[in-house]
Design a protein around this nucleic acid. Structure first.
Length: 478
DNA sequence: TGTTTCGGACTATCAATCTA
DNA sequence: AGATTGATAGTCCGAAACAT
């Protein structure tokens, strides 16, 4: 797929440069007319052309950008059906076309896009939660279709056509490729790795499935095409920061929560990104436009002004923000503490071998019985969709001592920050070589999976507050 | 409408510990 | 020695408060 020139350029840049040029530095325009982000910059002009096309479309941001498809993206009616009828559900919430859509300039302003970060229920989850990497693993054990798929930890979001004879082709992407004009003029081609199918695409896809024996149907309903993704690979190719930012700018109020939280990343709140949320899984699976959000990048060392203001800094000195607010004189790197040494930490929890996992997890709770794929990577979390009759409810509940019931003494589900949660089932995005297939380490304090001789989980109070005012609130004391 | 404040979610780093 | 773990130290999102 071809990218708009500004993105092509940024793709070749160092990630740091990408961040520096990222339009996500909201409301902080470039001061240099030669800068690619400057409104008068030639590259920016192309972008603005696309935007004019967008804004001239009477509040339908995507109908024009869809090229041959007349279906606006803010309608899920064109999406393939799914067993949970999620598309209709989504439509019933807030994906209807907004007759009072804001102007293009208003859409550009993220702060005006989303009066609430909570978004609209399921849609909010769709954006923040669906980025949960675990969802890419979703329901793998219960899906024979996925059996031959391979985990790709190389950092490249490739899926392996040879792995699954069922999904050697993405019909909708294929259709896209047949419209170079669409790719050229349409930002959608860049922002939507898999554009939503129109009726022709659906029909074509269904016909293909019929020819293939309809193995991936559920009561005759074709499953979502994103099933063709491998278990552990990202569902769509990753976007750059810049792509992502502009993507959400284009989305505007349609995806309000997404626009308001462009960077809230894979390890979001337990409720929105709970790794085992089948509801979100099906949102993801049924949404060909699902976009995996990139991890938030941060500078190694913010300047003193940005640090004080808790605002995004960049590597330049003076940084963009300081230039904007006339603080260039005082824009210097903040000092960093030296990490303490010689701090004893006690024995680490040990991860058991795959051969031991089956008996350990299955004997404790049915929820975790699918935690490890048969033959899959040890300790990787998969979606226990089939574990409970009401998976949605069960996974929407926080794991408190009360909700855990009799298991509370043996299982400790610590979602979120690995730093703040020394508990089991922690998420370690930084452990992975690629940002799009993070690892879930499964640990079961009290179970046979991990040994915690010092009962390290017990002293973990969880997130206890911000770091403001000195000291690290995340510090756990044994 | 723009700016500042700040809670807390999140990332990055790296020493301690584990394992082959 | 290299891999893994998890504590530490930081960044910065985004909502609310405040200023103009």
């Amino acid at each position: 797929m071809s990218l708009p020139p500004q993105f092509q350029q940024q793709d070749q840049q160092d990630p740091k440069d990408q961040q520096r040029l990222s339009p996500l530095v909201k409301n902080e325009p470039s001061f240099d007319p030669q800068h690619p982000q400057h409104p008068q910059h030639p590259q920016q002009y192309q972008s603005s052309q696309a935007f004019q096309q967008l804004s001239a479309n009477n509040g339908q941001p995507y109908s024009g950008l869809q090229g041959s498809s007349s279906t606006p993206i803010n309608s899920f009616s064109a999406l393939p059906a799914n067993p949970y009828n999620l598309n209709n559900h989504l439509m019933g919430l807030s994906m209807r076309q907004n007759p009072t859509a804001p102007s293009s300039s208003a859409r550009m302003n993220q702060s005006s896009l989303a009066p609430t970060s909570q978004g609209s229920g399921i849609l909010s989850g769709n954006v923040s939660g669906s980025t949960t990497p675990a969802l890419a693993y979703a329901s793998a054990p219960s899906s024979p279709i996925m059996n031959n798929m391979q985990y790709n930890s190389s950092g490249n979001s490739q899926y392996h056509p040879s792995s699954s004879s069922l999904y050697q082709q993405q019909p909708f992407q294929q259709h896209n490729q047949q419209h170079p004009q669409q790719q050229h003029s349409s930002l959608t081609a860049s922002f939507y790795p898999t554009s939503p199918p129109n009726q022709h695409q659906q029909l074509q896809y269904q016909q293909q499935q019929q020819q293939q024996g309809s193995l991936n149907t559920f009561n005759g309903v074709p499953s979502a095409p994103l099933r063709q993704q491998p278990q552990y690979a990202p569902l769509v190719p990753p976007l750059t920061d810049a792509q992502y930012a502009q993507y959400h700018q284009l989305l505007g109020s349609t995806f309000s929560s997404a626009a308001s939280t462009p960077y809230h990343s894979n390890q979001s709140t337990p409720y929105s990104s709970m790794p085992t949320s089948p509801t979100l899984e099906h949102q993801q699976l049924s949404d060909p436009n699902f976009v995996q959000k990139p991890k938030r990048r941060q500078v190694k060392n913010a300047c003193v002004n940005c640090q004080k203001a808790c605002k995004k800094c960049d590597e330049g000195r003076p940084c963009t923000r300081c230039r904007k607010y006339g603080l260039a004189d005082t824009c210097v790197d903040s000092t960093r503490k030296v990490r303490k040494k010689g701090v004893k930490r006690g024995p680490y929890k040990r991860r058991v071998q795959p051969s031991q996992l089956g008996s350990a997890s299955a004997s404790t709770t049915p929820v975790m019985s699918h935690a490890v794929l048969p033959g899959g990577p040890a300790g990787y979390m998969s979606e226990p969709v089939t574990a409970l009759n009401s998976p949605t409810q069960s996974h929407m509940l926080p794991f408190t001592s009360s909700t855990m019931g009799p298991l509370s003494g043996t299982l400790d589900f610590g979602y979120g920050n690995s730093a703040t949660s020394s508990s089991s089932y922690s998420f370690h995005p930084q452990r992975m070589d690629n940002n799009y297939a993070p690892a879930y380490t499964t640990s079961y304090s009290g179970s046979s999976l991990y040994s915690t001789p010092y009962n390290m989980n017990d002293y973990n109070g969880g997130p206890s507050g911000s770091n403001h005012g000195g000291g690290n609130s995340n510090t756990n004391q044994p």
